[in-house]
């Protein structure tokens, strides 16, 4: 577990003035490597959340590839998996092992079945 580190609002403000961040959507969407302020919240307060951070959050917290693409298809608040209340453990397991949309399949070498069960339960219970 790690101490919680919140995304600085100042950084988001910096992003809003950065190149290619010309509209309201751009706080979530930006291009490499000009845009700045994309420090991800890597904090956790439980072992399950720590596992989610280690294995998933690079894409599925703010500024992650998964969050950005999901936000094109659903309301932005639903694009953050940890904020969802409609994810089932079975659905998470299926998405991870089979891939979904632009998400690649995640192998058992990278995330073991036991680790996936922990992560799936964490998301099914609504995150932190």
């Amino acid at each position: 577990m790690k101490p919680r580190r919140f995304l600085s609002l100042a950084l988001l403000a910096a992003c809003a003035t950065a190149t290619a961040c010309g509209d309201d959507d751009a706080a979530e969407n930006a291009s490499a490597p000009a845009q700045r302020g994309f420090i991800q919240d890597r904090s956790s307060s439980s072992p399950a959340e720590a596992l989610f951070v280690e294995k998933c959050s690079m894409c599925h917290r703010a500024h992650g590839m998964g969050t950005i693409i999901l936000a094109r298809r659903m309301p932005p608040e639903r694009a953050m998996l940890e904020s969802r209340d409609d994810l089932t453990a079975d659905y998470v397991r299926q998405a991870v092992r089979s891939g979904i949309g632009n998400m690649p399949r995640i192998s058992r070498g990278e995330v073991s079945d036991a680790q996936l069960a922990t992560i799936a339960d964490y998301l099914a219970e609504g995150g932190p």
Partner: peptide
């Protein structure tokens, strides 16, 4: 200062691969 937050200062990111979409 707060971390600058981009690969220019060595901060890891995944968002550029949203271009796959």
């Amino acid at each position: 200062d707060s971390p600058e937050g981009s690969p220019l200062t060595g901060v890891p990111v995944s968002f550029p691969l949203a271009n796959a979409n």
